[in-house]
Design a protein around this nucleic acid. Sequence first.
DNA 1: CTAGAGTGTGGGAGCGCTCCCACAGCGCAT
DNA 2: ATGCGCTGTGGGAGCGCTCCCACACTCTAG
Lengths: 356, 356
Amino acid sequence: MSQTAQPPAGPLGGAGAGGRSSARPTLEEVAALAGVGRGTVSRVINGSPRVSEKAREAVQAAIAELGYVPNRAARTLVTSRTDSVALVVPEAETRLFSEPYFSDIISGVSAELAETDMQLLLILVRNQRERERLSAYLTAQRVDGVLLVSVHQDDPLPSILESLEIPSVLAGRRGDLEPLSYVHADNAGGARMAVRHLLRRGCRQVATITGPLDMEVAQARLGGYRRALEEAGRPYDEELVGLADFTEEGGRLAMRELLERRPDLDGVFCASDLMAAGAMQVLRAAGRRVPDQVAVIGFDDSIVARHTDPPMTSVRQPIEEMGRTMARLLLEEIAERGRARRQVVLATELVVRDSA
Amino acid sequence: MSQTAQPPAGPLGGAGAGGRSSARPTLEEVAALAGVGRGTVSRVINGSPRVSEKAREAVQAAIAELGYVPNRAARTLVTSRTDSVALVVPEAETRLFSEPYFSDIISGVSAELAETDMQLLLILVRNQRERERLSAYLTAQRVDGVLLVSVHQDDPLPSILESLEIPSVLAGRRGDLEPLSYVHADNAGGARMAVRHLLRRGCRQVATITGPLDMEVAQARLGGYRRALEEAGRPYDEELVGLADFTEEGGRLAMRELLERRPDLDGVFCASDLMAAGAMQVLRAAGRRVPDQVAVIGFDDSIVARHTDPPMTSVRQPIEEMGRTMARLLLEEIAERGRARRQVVLATELVVRDSA
DNA sequence: CTAGAGTGTGGGAGCGCTCCCACAGCGCAT
DNA sequence: ATGCGCTGTGGGAGCGCTCCCACACTCTAG
């Protein structure tokens, strides 16, 4: 027998006012109180210029008095806008994220959306079944746009979005000719910076440990490594390239192999902090001092970079800003309905600590 | 001039079928095709038992043929259910989370919700203004329930939820007599386990570094420390208690003070991994070997625990399961509309590594 | 003066669904 | 035969909004 909801508890207080019920006020009631028609109230709410000053004020007063809040469902029903966007994260990727990544993306997206009255829906996709459900979901037009965190080249989700023609923005891209809008960090530039730092420090044999090369990020970081070497007139030596998978264990394995192949190496650029952490452990176990004998640089500037011994030099990507930018691009795309592809590359930065 | 959406691309293919338009099919069209009334289709969709087998089959066939998906807005408009829940995270708390915390909570919540067709809305609240907006938002009944991640005793959000009488579940609780439903880890038990481990290991002077005592988690962990000592017949000595704020820097400060006050200490239980990491740094700088001279245990089993030197023994809380449980409780609470308070305490676990 | 173009306004129609009432059809007890 | 209940069904009403048409009223030009 209890009430489902409280009265709005507006400036005039709750149930007191006598006549009016405690249910949520509707646009119609606002119109009645303001002495205008429904159309006018709607126009005021939606910021139409075609309303007289007098009417606008009356309506606004009525809205304030009643504590009126528009019913989103009713609006959606007629406009078929939902005023919400989805952030879609394939669960598999989740394991690859450098640690505060996810929170930072969310934080950025949410910050940008806070200005608007867009809702943020979070959708984690953990398997094929859920991928199909997502497809159905999106086809049913339940969101105005999609932010997709996806890194693998063979992820089917981007193509789905493409064919659905729903406004969407990717974090990262599948390749150079990514047809969808995307935001990503300057991975190549960051890697180049890191390797130049190693060279400038006097390293003669700079190795690298890469991520899986079916990911554009991994390719780009390897590309930056290569470019820096070439710019310095050094040969690109495949023996100095260790393939791994972004994980700590992968980093350890790759480092051991590298050490065996090229015991003379004196610098390692790792495409992730986790791999760098693994590499540092192996180096230490092999009796090499970091950074004196071997300098190490990671990528991501994640939490672990601050907690290795010695603290790790790493390339920082502006993840929160990526989130913010993604949201902004998506809002633009939704607003204009025109399918202009947008791409933003954000600068990376070398955070120098003690490992290099 | 471009189409807003693609046809459903159902089994029968898109625009081909001639008569029917490419717009999303409505319940009415399903009814027509199935040769029944709207009511019957609605009953089938909502799983009412009062439908003949024959009608049900006809309707299901029609749904499949048309690729029909119910319009959520229309349903919401009449039922005033939204089929969505919000996960509310005060931004301030975000900084206190041990690192994969946020992702793990989300992952758990999302996993539980995936079974249902509930949507997950994510709301980050970063300041007073947004707190007010959230209030308005919730008053407008835009979600069926709320999951709140909040740890501070003086957070106003829980009280707001309480007075709004909206189904809600907290991660953590404000105190013993938390009136809202909540899920939390057995912090006291975990702390007790950790301290017992230290004692069993032979530590004679076990110190602790606590979090801010206006947080129930911090209190509970301190309580567990105290209890373990008392059970072992040791006195609770305030000199061995260092107050900090869950941060690494706080851990360092507290450790220095502790070391000064009680140079004889040989074990430290820290209420967070970050503080433990800070403490370990200070111990090393002071020339104390961990774990030989001073054993250290952290709390959270976060990423950093695996990356300190030596790797840290820490108390693990089942965060993903907390998320899952929160979602489950919330669904129950929404389903029954009865405001029965639910509380679940999940067991913690000591992960033994090298620091103790 | 009238015609015409603009401005501001009210309110009908209708978005796609659920709710609920009315009613048909059946079996069973009276 | 009549009455009653129960099951399954169709469809009207209506949720709260936006869209858009019609209209009143103003102002300017002819």
